[in-house]
Every structure is written in structure tokens, then in C-alpha cells.
Design a protein around this nucleic acid. Structure first.
Lengths: 120, 120
DNA sequence: TCGCTGGTGTTAGCTAATCTAACACGTGCT
DNA sequence: AGCACGTGTTAGATTAGCTAACACCAGCGA
């Protein structure tokens, strides 16, 4: 079981692959980047390069958007920052709201890249 | 734990990604295809699309080449076919030769795509 | 030694994929 | 009504990938 390198965080996937795996459009994926939700690397030729971690993040973003959150909300959840109300509090509030909506099950996390790790 | 789809066999990776992950050149990857060792799918625009299974196969091919096998040998190992000497016999012979060379440990199989399945 | 074969490098010319920037549009909120 | 948000679409430019061809060299049998 050789560990090749940091595969999950290695930026090697072009946007077409990400589109296929997340079911998002290129427009959406690029827009979420302008909103600071993801930070893909760039190839020598300036093409975006994503990691599997990015893909998991995008899937989560897609679901949170579908749950009624704005991109600003989602950003706030992902990069905690100093505020009047404590971050942990805000996080808990939003999370509860999600639960109440029944859109998220705390024990049901599915990361796409886990699928890549299927063991024969 | 949602199972999205057959991720390991889903052809979504362009050749640039495969090059990065296998450390093979595009020339080598395409040549191994002409030798019937891999069979990538094609995009609507005729670009090759690889799966993680293909990547694992390519890594294995690279190692077997480095061990002194020819592509014809490797193809014979992968697609068993009727011959005078039984396939299992030929397979065993080649495998033993590998062992004797000390290039391969029967319990040390590393598949790249397992790395993709790192669980947080 | 000569000539062949297998595996790889490189190039040219073409098509597909991606990039940025801009404008459009609907929905929801004030 | 006016504005902000999230997304679609388009144009024009650049990079990535494709096929086909030619080159090269190490190894190997005649």
C-alpha cells in the first residue's frame, strides 16, 4: 500500500472533469471561485486545475445552495472570521436551521472522492 | 454514504491528468492504447477520457516495463487467451520470474486510485 | 556486422477545450 | 421601481489534445 502523494489535494483535474463529477456548469464553478469559495490552481497555460477536495467542496456548496443558503452564507460557514456573534454560535445556528429543514443528516456525509477509493 | 455512481470506472479524466498521475508521456499512453493495453473512452470532441482503473493499469504497465517485460508480454498477461501452454501456467511462470527479480512483492499492490479514497 | 523491431521523441496542421470580459435575464427584497 | 444575486450566453483569444508522419536508438537475431 504505497502512498503515492497527497492525492486528494493534488490539483490535476480540469473544469470539464469537475463539471461531470459535480453536475455544475462551468459558469457556476467559476463564479463560486470569484466568491472565494474555492481556489483552484492553474496550469502553465492558465487553465484551472482542481483537486478532489475541491470537488467535495463544490458538491457541498451545491447542496447548501439548494437548501436556501446564499453564497455569502456558505462562505461564512467555510472560512470562520471574527464577528460580534461568535463563529461557533453562528455555525450552530445555521446548522440547526438545516436540520430543521430536514435537508441534511449529520451522519450522512457523502464525499465524491470516497467513491474514487473503492477497494476491490 | 451515498454511492454516486461507478466512479472508479467512469471515464472523465483527460490525458493531461493521466500524465501527471502516472508520470508517463502522452506518447507512451497513446502507444499503449495502440497495443491494446488500455481502451479509453472518447469525448464528444474526440478527446480521450480515462478512468481511475485505467490509471492503475498504466502504473502497473509502467512497472512491468521497468521489470523488463515487453508490451506484448504485458498484454498477454492481461488478456488471457487460449494457447498451447495453459494461461494460468504462463501467468505463474512470469510471476515467479518477477518475484525472483525482487521487483514485485505479491502483497504490495498499490493502486493510485486508492489514494483518492482517503477518508477524513 | 548488418538490418530489423520495439518503444519513444518530435513536429506539423487541425479541432476541441478553456479563458476572460461583457451583456442579459429572472427572482427576491427594499 | 430599483438593486443585488446567481446564472446563461456570446465573442475573441489562447491552450490542450488529436492524427499522421518521420526520426532515433538500444537490443537482438541472421
Amino acid at each position: 500500500m504505497t502512498e503515492i502523494s497527497a492525492l486528494r489535494t493534488r490539483p490535476v483535474l480540469p473544469i470539464s472533469t469537475v463539471m461531470a463529477l459535480t453536475e455544475l456548469t462551468a459558469r457556476q464553478i467559476r463564479y463560486y471561485e470569484t466568491q472565494e469559495l474555492i481556489h483552484p490552481a492553474r496550469s502553465a497555460g492558465n487553465h484551472r486545475l482542481y483537486s478532489l477536495t475541491d470537488i467535495d467542496a463544490l458538491i457541498e456548496i451545491r447542496e447548501q445552495l439548494a437548501s436556501g443558503f446564499s453564497l455569502a452564507d456558505i462562505r461564512a460557514l467555510r472560512h470562520p472570521r471574527r464577528r460580534e456573534t461568535s463563529d461557533s454560535e453562528a455555525r450552530r445556528m445555521l446548522r440547526e436551521e438545516l436540520m430543521n429543514q430536514g435537508r441534511l443528516n449529520p451522519n450522512d456525509r457523502h464525499t465524491l472522492s470516497q467513491g474514487f477509493g473503492f477497494r476491490s
